[in-house]
Amino acid sequence: MSDSIRQAQDKPIRVLITDDHFVVRQGLRLILKTAVDIELVGEAENGEEALQLTAEQQPDVILMDLRMPVMDGLTAIEQLGQLHPQVAVIILTTYNEDDMMLRGLQLGARGYLLKDTDRETLLNTIRAAARGESLFKPEILQRAFSIQAASSSIKKTVPTSDSVQLTPRELEVLQAAATGERNKEIAQQLNISARTVKAHLTSVYNKLGVDSRAAAIAIAAKKGWL
């Protein structure tokens, strides 16, 4: 059974859009309305409004712009992590926001989307985030992270990043995770248990000094491991 059919049979994914540009919100709204398994529960123009609407509407996923007045996206992501850790945040970004995007992932965002992303990528990323997973295209990550911006931010969490080495199995698991595979699917692909997959991912997080799949994939893409 496909993910869209499974979600449609259950309750819809509740999504909140946060962006200070009306045109962006309108475009996202029109796309989300075409998906039977997704429900738009609100729109915010800044991070402060997003926090208020999150408390009121209890969304499953928030699409979060980074540059906004009143309260920017990074501040909102940090506060959401403290107040509503169950909510998955997906960053809305452009190619000139590399450093901010990496900081957002390190703060706990589940993934990111370019503002001109296509419908299928948008919906699949939302569904993956709602399942507690991340869905990335490694080639886009590599293009998005400039070496200078990424290295300056990564050094804050990985003191000796150049010396970090993953085992061949850890790398296989991380590469599969970067394509959006769930732990169960990775386990079947590699002929290991889902518990072992989780253990490998935990080891990867510890080695890279991160606490989320999104941040680990971001660092791996910058290093060329994907």
Rank of each mutant, 00 (worst) to 15 (best):
R103M: 11
A50D: 02
L53F: 15
R131F: 13
L190F: 13
K156C: 06
T160G: 09
R213W: 03
G42E: 09
V23M: 13
G180L: 02
G132E: 10
S153W: 12
G47T: 06
H21P: 00
R195W: 10
I140C: 01
P12M: 03
N46L: 11
T54W: 08
A215D: 09
L105T: 03
G73Y: 04
E185G: 11
A35I: 02
S152N: 14
D3T: 13
A149Q: 06
P85Q: 09
R110D: 03
T202L: 02
V158W: 10
V41S: 04
A177S: 15
A109T: 02
D3F: 12
G132H: 06
Q7K: 13
S151C: 05
T94D: 10
K184M: 07
A194W: 08
Q26E: 15
D20K: 08
D37S: 11
I90K: 05
D37V: 00
R119V: 13
I154W: 14
V173W: 01
A214V: 02
V36C: 01
A8F: 15
A214N: 05
M64K: 00
T93M: 09
T125F: 13
N46R: 07
D10C: 02
F136A: 00
G132D: 05
L135K: 06
H200N: 04
N206E: 13
Q82V: 11
R169H: 12
L190I: 08
T196R: 14
L83Q: 12
G42N: 09
A177L: 15
D116V: 07
L63G: 04
L92T: 00
M1N: 09
S134V: 00
G209P: 13
D116M: 06
G27E: 01
T121M: 06
S193Q: 06
F145A: 08
M68G: 02
A216M: 04
V15D: 06
A215P: 07
K155A: 14
V87Q: 02
L166S: 01
K156D: 14
L166Q: 03
S2E: 13
L30I: 07
I31Y: 11
I154S: 07
S163P: 10
A55Y: 08
A76M: 09
G224F: 10
F145D: 01
R6I: 12
N124A: 15
P168A: 02
R182L: 15
A150T: 00
A150K: 00
D72P: 01
P159W: 04
Q142H: 03
E170G: 05
E170D: 10
G224P: 10
E120F: 00
R29L: 07
F22I: 12
S163T: 14
S4H: 11
G47H: 05
E43F: 08
P159D: 14
G47W: 08
S146C: 05
R195T: 15
R14E: 12
Q148H: 12
T125N: 10
S4D: 08
I31N: 08
N124T: 14
L28N: 06
Y112S: 10
Q148Y: 05
R127Y: 01
G81R: 06
I219V: 09
D211N: 11
K156E: 15
L53T: 05
F145M: 13
I126P: 07
S212Q: 03
L16N: 02
R169V: 12
R25G: 13
L208T: 05
I91G: 04
N96L: 01
E56H: 07
L113K: 05
G104C: 08
